[in-house]
Design a protein around this nucleic acid. Structure first.
Lengths: 337, 337
DNA sequence: CTGAAAGCGCTTACAG
DNA sequence: CTGAAAGCGCTTACAG
């Protein structure tokens, strides 16, 4: 356990009278060494406090046992919760996670970000961001597996693990109908993000089935305009319901409406997505669509591990296997009239 | 931008007719090269899509430009919010963050965790965990700077960046007195974590100044017992106020009490710590102590950077410079009677 | 079953 | 101002 200078394989070799090669083989549990040699090596490692240098190991072997995680907003519990689950699961298999943020600029990973990622030579990339479209060939040529999580991968021909967004949107639409809403608003995120449009699609269709049409002014992409614009729209058109792309948007909507004296849950219904209140174990006040995020995250981790460890399982994305999204009702629904 | 096989310095050297040495010098902006050489190198790098291998670079130079972040619970917005700020700030200076979780087992970093950390040869460690006491010499002998964030470092003779916990606890105590509480409970985290005891100290002293004594059964360390035990205690002693170590504990307390028909904000007051509602931009319902977490996080990042970049500034910990903790009132305070 | 040599892709002295 | 050589700490062929 004593340790002054850096202890390397060479030191273990010297101590045991073996070659660095043999020591390395023992530590990596490669075949061919005697029990006696194994014990000598382990004793010397313990005694000298040897710790492998993963940088050197990675350089030579080509595998850094590192997974890069790309995100835009770690504060959103959807990201921190899933990141926590995924990185722990990866850790159990000897992979560490290295974090890269695009600093909340957009839903995309750009060239600068990918440069930084690739310079770390990760064994895989798990991305909450979509790749900028012109980067796809670049990423593919790097040969590093790229798994998109929580976004649709199909526009890029990549593996994407995501929930049944359309059905989630439909559940929200039906719920607002049940609340008696006739003039709802969809507060989306970005107009060019597929999952945003999928939720919009499900929402729109469910409303239409109930005889409520959604006109263009009833759709606002909240991440693309000042938040004020969204609230103004809701107020000016006297909306009686809002379906938000996620709970983070819904939280602000509720806070802002209440600040204006509008009684959420009475004058207007608000529905979010992700059910982050459960992740935080907080009293539930916001009605939200729950897609079963824990299983979702586990599915993402398993997909990554299958690829990293060379299991070429024909894998169904989460969307086909998870239970249907459900509405978790809070206090922001309008009592049925 | 085309890239089939891995592009190395050798390829750039071949392309430009220079030595790898010179290419490396240009890319690292070391002195001594002509404008013309610089342009030739940059052109070739762009053309071939060269990306440095930080593993190789780190191995040779001794600096991996990596900071390890140690945490126990990324889902708590206190951690995700500060991690986000800190890792972005580090990124601006060319450092990436690599995450290590102790899987929520305890507030400590143990030997296994530190082995994993040190194997990555980070330039620094920023830890939300305290080091297990017997690991301190081991960590020190590694020579890697270790900054403790959000916990007191003094018990370990290490730099700790933390808030004025005692005053924070006192603010909570005074607030509960103002709510008319006479039988309050402190829902701490762990009995051996200094910041938990500091908040308890400030809380106890403020109550005493108001003529309310806190007996041992009015103190529960919520992370050490089943949550049920805490709630039972609150109910059985008919407590009229609860000060929780952090908002995550407070959220559960509020949810559980409400589930039992106890009206929080009327029958009982609940105060949390960290004001995570603001981080999430959510409507404020929980009364909480706010220590100014944004500045706090920036202070942690700056401290790390000062050390990494060799600025031996005599630095005052955050505790001496930040504004006093304030109570942010929500709906869980009991109206003054 | 064990060892001597080569090499991963860089950066660091050291020559010129 | 530029280059040839050595070496960071490992693992991978290849011999024996």
């Amino acid at each position: 356990m004593e340790q002054r200078k850096k202890v390397t394989l060479k030191d273990i070799a010297a101590r045991t009278g073996l070659s660095v090669n043999t020591v390395s083989r023992v530590l990596n549990k490669k075949p061919y060494y005697t029990k006696e040699v194994e014990e000598r090596v382990n004793a010397a490692c313990k005694e000298l406090g040897y710790i492998v240098d993963m940088n050197a190991s990675g350089l030579r072997s080509g595998s850094t046992r590192t997974v890069a995680i790309l995100y835009d907003d770690l504060v959103n519990p959807f990201y921190s919760y899933t990141t926590d689950i995924i990185s722990k699961r990866l850790e159990e298999h000897g992979y560490n996670s290295i974090m890269f943020s695009n600093n909340n600029r957009s839903p995309y990973a750009d060239y600068e970000l990918m440069r930084a990622v690739l310079s770390r030579k990760p064994d895989g990339v798990l991305s909450f961001l979509e790749p900028a479209a012109d980067l796809v060939p670049f990423i593919r040529s790097s040969g590093i597996p790229f798994v998109i999580f929580g976004r649709d991968g199909s526009p890029y021909g990549m593996l994407g693990i995501n929930a049944d967004e359309v059905r989630g949107g439909a559940a929200a639409g039906r719920h607002l109908l049940e609340c008696g809403c006739r003039r709802p608003v969809y507060a989306g995120s970005w107009h060019d993000v597929k999952v945003c449009l999928d939720r919009q699609k499900g929402f729109t269709e469910a409303l239409a089935a109930g005889g409520v049409e959604l006109s263009p002014e009833q759709i606002v992409y909240a991440r693309e305009v000042p938040f004020e614009t969204l609230i103004e729209r809701i107020v000016s058109m006297q909306a009686d319901g809002v379906f938000c792309f996620n709970d983070m948007i819904a939280f602000v909507v509720v806070a802002e409406l209440e600040a204006r004296g509008i009684r959420v849950g009475q004058d207007i219904a608000v529905v979010g997505f992700d059910n982050v209140q459960q992740m935080l174990n907080m009293p539930r006040f916001l009605t939200s669509v729950d897609v079963g995020v824990t299983d979702f995250a586990v599915c993402g981790a398993e997909a990554m591990l299958d690829i990293l460890e060379g299991r070429e399982t024909e894998r169904a994305p989460f969307i086909e296997t998870h239970p249907a999204p459900v509405i978790v009702q809070g206090k922001t629904s309008v009592p049925r009239t």
